[in-house]
Write a protein that binds this DNA or RNA. Structure first.
Lengths: 234, 234
DNA sequence: ATGCTAATTATGTCTATACATAAAAGTCAA
DNA sequence: TTGACTTTTATGTATAGACATAATTAGCAT
């Protein structure tokens, strides 16, 4: 199955996890204390502590001082998805990547967008729309607004050689993001751009990216529903 | 912003993260060694070690023995979604939850499904289809296959009082899962069940759940695209 | 019973030390 | 230059001991 873990906290971690999965301890049940487990495994308390702490980080067990450690009674099924850079995603499948900027203008955004970017009234934002191709087939339509105040140097960037997403990742690598996924109908314009029928299903990702208090960019990414899938594990 | 962290490894963690976000250290750059940071922060190396280890777990930095610790050069934008129990998700919005079993039968599955469930040829599987309502509006159509050998007691369960998903979470709480999200067109039957137009967009989640080597269940969850959104953060 | 206080206890963190280990860097011979 | 061996070094793990802290439990007074 998995390669043999060597470190002893890992062995203990895996052993405890096995016992939980096999219901040796039921959900809600309190497992032995660190001290007791340290004796059982013949190691120090810190080693057991690390093993259990990692289980707690994953939401497998819940810990409370004095009360002890118990198996989570209703673990929520959470999953990690990784939204990779589009170019790499496409090239990883052996396809060729290309994109075009449809338009790029600095304009005063509509009120809803102004609020999202927390701009003052009348302040302009950068509006970019582009189309990404996989093997020359339209793959993603991108409609993006950027708060230029948050990204020095963006006014000088024409995005001819690098797409806005990759440029922004370089410019603000450790920003936080929030995604909303949904299925929508393709409107006429989007359908034409993606080369699909008007009314075809779209897989839509809306992403807001910020650093500290500043919203940097919000973007709507539209994929033809049948050509795009998003995977997640665990 | 966030409440003041007390523990010193947390303070160091946050301080290092700040320095990375503010580009005090550039992506790809090597940060000072544990020993040096321990002196700088006036603490022991173990404390620094834990701070950096947690950054490494989050993918903020990359560590290699002898080479040191460097700021991740191309951090992948990963996000955690939590697929909660449908009933709770609906009730959390203040709506009422109800569901009906459309059918439940033990049949030999089609070949593709047989392979997914790793059943022998001719072995039957449990096929359940049900419909979930939010405030009496159709909200999700569920089409599920279960490997009965993996879930003792399921043959006696009629799912009149508890839905299959919640029952399975109770029965196999720490199973692993894999999700595929996509947008699809509603076929005629699904559209009718969900009370939407045939050809309307569907947000589809396909989930495979397993424990150890056994695939327990695979399920296709269909939502009207306009009424369903999936959120993710970070 | 009820409410307050003090004792107890399991986890949470920190330290100093030790040794293991992977990998870079250095050394030297063919 | 190349390859093989050795040294060095930063991280990885483990330990024993200490104190901190939250929260349950027990004891006490009303």
């Amino acid at each position: 199955m998995s390669q043999p873990r060597q470190s002893s906290f890992q062995k203990i971690h895996d052993d405890l996890l096995d016992k939980i999965k096999s219901r040796h301890w039921q959900p809600g049940e309190t497992i032995p204390g660190e001290e007791a487990l340290a004796v059982e495994y013949g190691c120090s308390r810190m080693t057991v502590n690390r093993a259990i702490r990692e289980l707690a980080d994953k939401g497998i067990v819940e810990r409370r001082r004095k009360a002890g450690t118990r198996v989570a009674s209703r673990p929520d099924r959470s999953a990690k998805i990784s939204i990779s850079v589009l170019r790499r995603e496409i090239e990883a499948r052996g396809a060729s990547y290309r994109y075009v900027i449809l338009d790029r203008e600095e304009v005063v955004p509509p009120e809803g967008m102004r609020a999202k970017l927390s701009l003052k009234k009348g302040e302009p934002a950068l509006h970019i729309r582009c189309l990404h191709f996989s093997d020359e087939h339209p793959y993603q339509f991108e409609d993006r607004w950027i708060n230029p105040a948050c990204v020095p140097g963006i006014r000088e960037q024409d995005f001819e050689t690098i797409n806005p997403n990759e440029w922004l990742i370089e410019a603000v690598p450790f920003a936080e993001a929030e995604h909303v996924f949904s299925a929508q109908l393709a409107d006429e314009q989007t359908a034409e751009l993606l080369g699909i029928a008007s009314g075809a299903p779209l897989f839509v990702i809306e992403r807001r990216t910020w650093l500290g208090d500043d919203t940097i960019t919000t973007v709507k990414l539209c994929h033809p529903g049948d050509s795009f899938k998003l995977f997640s594990r665990s």
